[in-house]
């Protein structure tokens, strides 16, 4: 229509994907942090036995990687988180859908969910150790628990918030219940499912480290405990830095995936 405002079509495809400016800003911010740390070390305000220099930690990091098998700890911890998140989400998806879609189910189950959600997963670790011992099943079950309860709320709130107009429009066009589920509910809930993925990944990292601090022979939590036991402060630093790094990297991967899957979203 001639009278109508023209609409910009630019930037349809260009926005997503990797962009250099924010990446450089991120690198700069970490370099600044490193410099501040170096300065703090240099100022001698803290005992140098308690605050190692950045390069010292870097040296230990390389040493741990090449000689002590730090990569195995990283791999084990990451695998535990991934298994926990995937299993937790697999349960949370159908449950979240039932809760979001059926009011009666929500009224019945909501209070219980809220109780368990308010409970920090770490509080369950002693009980889980009593039940499963200190092996892999104990850690994984705590992680599944953590992933489930942190994501189920996000998913069901997401389902609940699907604008009713989409359902009405599709019904008016003749959609069956199954078609409404497949063609409306699933795509409309996808952004919330991806948010749930990110939230539960974050929660799982927190929980994992706590679980590994208590009981694990290997894993990044165990690295920290070992550092503490042998009073090797640089090793503790290495453990902390690696946990942060892996968690940030995983979040970045999820963000990237989200941006790709949700190009249609208004705010992207």
């Amino acid at each position: 229509m001639p009278q109508e405002r023209a609409v910009k079509r630019s930037g349809c495809a260009k926005q997503r994907g990797f962009s250099t400016a924010p990446f450089l800003a991120g690198v700069a911010s970490f370099l600044t942090l490193g410099a501040a740390w170096g300065l703090l070390w240099w100022s001698n305000l803290f005992d140098r036995g308690l605050l190692p220099a950045p390069w010292e930690v870097l040296k230990v990091l390389i040493e741990q990687m090449t000689e002590k098998g730090l990569w195995l700890d990283i791999l084990l911890s990451t695998r535990r988180v991934v298994v926990g998140v995937v299993c937790g989400l697999a349960i949370a998806l159908p449950v979240g859908f039932l809760l979001g879609w059926y009011k009666s189910v929500r009224a019945f189950i909501d209070p219980v969910i809220n109780f368990y959600r308010a409970l920090p997963p770490i509080a369950l670790i002693p009980l889980v150790i009593v039940y499963f011992g200190i092996g892999e099943p104990a850690r994984i079950s705590v992680l599944i628990y953590a992933a489930f309860f942190s994501s189920v709320i996000v998913i069901y709130e997401g389902i609940k918030m699907i604008p009713p107009i989409y359902i009405r429009v599709s019904k008016a066009l003749g959609a069956s219940d199954f078609e409404i589920f497949k063609k409306i509910v699933v795509p409309a809930a996808l952004p919330h499912v991806l948010t749930a993925f990110r939230v539960s990944t974050g929660v799982c990292w927190t929980t994992l480290v706590a679980a590994e601090l208590v009981a694990a022979e290997r894993g990044l939590g165990a690295v920290i405990v070992n550092g503490q036991n042998f009073f090797q402060v640089p090793v503790i630093f290495v453990g902390i830095i690696m946990i942060g790094t892996v968690a940030v990297l995983m979040d970045q991967v999820l963000r990237y995936a989200t941006a790709h899957l949700l190009t249609w979203q208004e705010s992207m």
Binding site: P163, Y166, V169, I184, P187, W264, E266
Partner: peptide, 8 residues
């Protein structure tokens, strides 16, 4: 409110 599907 139109009700066009934003994901399509």
């Amino acid at each position: 409110e139109y009700g066009v599907f934003p994901w399509l």
